[in-house]
Nucleic acid binder design. Structure first.
Lengths: 150, 150
DNA sequence: ATTTCATGTAACTTATGATGTGTCGAGTCT
DNA sequence: AGACTCGACACATCATAAGTTACATGAAAT
């Protein structure tokens, strides 16, 4: 089943925007993501409605970050892009007549719910600022890596 | 995104088969699941290849359980039906050139992998026998419920 | 042997939702 | 006015589980 890339893409975009002065146009972002500007607008509309980014029309317009990275968690972005279904697996029906199916659904739902809860918890615990720091450290590691040998 | 019901369906079927003497035909099972016999055969082929059920052609043929319920975990069934993708979410690419995207992917992958690990762990810890027992208890609870009042 | 019942499999269609694409309208700067 | 950018709408594409049709194969009943 095809996977939903909106969260991944938006995290990517937000981190780049934070390292870029001035607004970024949908075209620039689309080029970066290897997609279409319309897809960018469509996806980023959610972030705008949630107040994480701003968009401005006209010459010199584009997208810019509206809040510090430290105040945006991965969970926030997940929700802003629509909080899509996390699982590709699911029960066959929500309110089955068959008692056997109820037992099966209860067991599966329980396991899925717990996995979802933990995943969202973890996404909520990571801020974009932390990813940005991780990026800095990664660059630093390369600079002070085996070639320069300190 | 549409969800994959194979695991749920197969659990449902296996529990019913265990309470039913003699083989069950694809037609009977399809009727129970509200689907088509070909879908049943296609999905149950995985269970047969894994040795959890047997199939026999011809008059009086059909499907029957080949191993005790206590020896089949929900994880076993998940794998037998193809171990499909669990998440509808995913990174945009596996080996991104962009270092920012690498950081994003690492964070997302880490969270998803842990959620997956826990989910599979939990599915592996539940056997079909336990679900069958849960069903018995559910029935008992109804029989000794408010109407009969002990 | 023939009929009947059942699985095995291939090929095709359908359904669903993210993604991709083209177009036009509206706002904003030069 | 002209260049630019977002907003939106409509439609096409793609991937995959599920549904459907058709036919071959094997086994039991007659």
């Amino acid at each position: 089943m095809r996977q939903d890339n909106r969260l991944s893409r938006m995290l990517h975009v937000l981190l780049h925007m934070a390292r870029h002065d001035g607004p970024a146009t949908s075209n620039m972002i689309a080029g970066m993501l290897g997609t279409n500007p319309v897809v960018v607008r469509r996806t980023m509309a959610g972030l705008r409605d949630a107040g994480y980014v701003r968009s401005e029309k006209g010459h010199g317009g584009g997208w810019s970050i509206a809040r510090p990275l430290s105040e945006i968690s991965l969970l926030d972005v997940h929700r802003a892009v629509g909080g899509p279904h996390i699982f590709a697996l699911g029960p066959v029906s929500d309110n089955p007549d068959c008692a056997v199916e109820q037992v099966v659904n209860d067991a599966l739902d329980g396991a899925l719910r717990e996995a979802e809860r933990r995943l969202l918890e973890r996404l909520g615990a990571i801020s974009l600022a932390e990813l940005s720091t991780a990026f800095d450290e990664k660059c630093q590691a390369v600079l002070s890596g085996p070639i320069r040998d300190r």
